[in-house]
Design a protein around this nucleic acid. Structure first.
Lengths: 150, 150
DNA sequence: CTTGACTCCGTACCGAGGTACAGGGTGTAG
DNA sequence: CTACACCCTGTACCTCGGTACGGAGTCAAG
């Protein structure tokens, strides 16, 4: 039984102790059991939850939206149509974000590829690419984005 | 020559007039030419730029980062290694965001698929999926996310 | 039993990203 | 020439997502 302190939790997830308490106040993390002294006691699930929150933030979800996302996961009534609908909406959100990111990525890689030699950037096709993003077709090829590049 | 007012620009990009001026102060949009009266005069490029800013924000870039992104595009010296390096860094950022999004997406679609019938969500494989995200392998299959779903 | 790191709670403060006046000028339709 | 919508500058204010105290209790090592 791995009961960890707030400091250990914070460290494990790469955030500050104050931030953990802040998330608790905001309802993103629920109040953990306490020791007799009043010290919070977390388990490893809390670490995962906290990491999830950070990742979701990175890609532009607000704390409110992240609460929704977590609620979807935690809701024991998740089978209901209402919840599925919200999940579907989040998927659509995510798709839009992915599409925007891939369009930006395509522009940047074009810049990288085309301007590898010399000459001014203004000659790059990227200018046009940026101007009109491929917002309507994720381009399939975009899947090239996969790991193995960083 | 399509010279539009700040109000028309704002409307075209779906933001408020105040926001446009705010971006100008922040250096995201450069100060446009003025009419004799002092009225700002924009062209269609400004609309694209403004839309780009909004999309970049949606996926979690800060205004500071967006400035960088735009500078990469606009820099007449973009051929230099330094700039390419920053572009590469942004691509890496984007890849991380995409990876996180696809992991979340996979979790949510699993929820949707598995819980389509009835039974409590706690039975769903999603629980485990969320718990341990496929952060290390973009899963290839994730490319299923492509258009044609929203 | 003292010391130092850690925890508690509460409140104050902070930067980012806007949003909303106030107090004025512009432009055009009637 | 009056109305009314729009624009100007400037400053004040707001929410979000934290971060930083202050003052006090806890706990493990020495």
């Amino acid at each position: 039984m791995p009961a960890i302190s707030i400091g250990q939790l914070a460290k494990a997830a790469g955030v500050g102790v104050e931030t953990v308490r802040f998330y608790e106040r905001k309802g993103l993390l629920d109040a953990p059991p306490r020791k007799g002294s009043g010290y919070r006691q977390y388990d490893d699930d809390a670490v995962e939850r906290l990491k999830f929150i950070r990742r979701a933030q990175l890609v532009g979800f607000t704390l409110k939206e992240i609460q929704d996302l977590l609620a979807l996961r935690d809701d024991p009534d998740a089978r209901r149509a209402d919840v599925r609908e919200r999940a579907a909406a989040k998927v659509a959100d995510i798709d839009e974000k992915v599409r925007d990111l891939l369009a930006m990525r395509a522009s940047l890689t074009t810049l990288l590829a085309t301007c590898e030699g010399d000459g001014p950037a203004s000659d790059c096709p990227i200018i046009t690419a940026f101007r009109d993003e491929g917002r309507n077709e994720p381009t399939e090829r975009s899947c090239e984005h996969g790991a193995g590049e960083d």
